[in-house]
Amino acid sequence: MSLNYYLQKSLQVGIGYQMYLSDFTQRDREDEFYRLFGHLNYRISDTINMNVQAGVSLGSSTAENIDFDGWFFTINYGFQLGQF
């Protein structure tokens, strides 16, 4: 789920929420994982864009050695080689 707003034609800001649920079939394990984050999308040109995300992740697992809690920061740079 995401809520976005265009500050300019090429600049978009927003907040997002993601939820992941996993139930494993070959072992007795269930995971719940949540992310709450802010993001900034900037279109540099028609074929180049950049995305920055930062937020917190929370979750639990029935496996004792798995910890989902923490902060994250990502930068993605994308470009389009061509269209088919």
Results as ranks from 00 to 15, higher is better:
Y6E: 08
L40R: 04
S2V: 14
L40Q: 02
E32Q: 13
E32V: 07
R27A: 10
F33M: 08
R27N: 09
Y20H: 02
E32H: 09
L21T: 10
V13W: 05
Y20Q: 13
N4M: 02
Q8W: 11
D28T: 13
I15W: 04
Y6S: 14
G38M: 07
T25N: 15
D23I: 00
D28R: 12
H39P: 01
Y34V: 06
L7R: 00
K9P: 10
L7N: 04
Q12R: 14
Y34W: 12
G38V: 13
S10H: 07
F24S: 06
N41D: 12
Q8K: 15
Q8P: 00
K9G: 05
V13K: 04
F33V: 03
Y20L: 04
F33Q: 12
L40G: 06
Q18S: 13
Y20G: 00
M1H: 09
G14R: 08
F33G: 01
D31M: 08
Q18V: 02
K9S: 09
L36T: 15
Y6P: 05
Y20R: 11
F33E: 14
E30P: 00
S10Q: 14
L36Y: 15
Q18D: 15
Q26S: 02
M1W: 07
G14V: 01
N4L: 03
E30C: 00
S2I: 05
E30W: 02
Q8Y: 14
F33W: 14
L7E: 01
Y34F: 12
E30Q: 12
M19V: 08
S22M: 03
Q12K: 15
G16S: 12
G38Y: 07
N41K: 12
D31R: 09
V13C: 06
D23Q: 14
G14S: 00
I15F: 11
R27H: 05
H39L: 12
R27L: 05
Y5I: 01
M19G: 05
G14D: 01
L3M: 09
D28Q: 15
Y20E: 04
Q18G: 08
N41A: 06
Y5T: 10
E30F: 02
N4G: 11
E30G: 04
L21M: 10
Y5S: 02
V13H: 01
Y17K: 11
N41V: 09
Y6A: 13
Q18C: 00
N4E: 10
N4Q: 10
K9H: 10
Y42N: 07
V13S: 07
L3K: 10
Y5P: 09
D23W: 04
K9R: 14
R29D: 04
G16V: 08
L36W: 09
N41I: 06
D28M: 03
L21K: 08
D23V: 04
D31I: 06
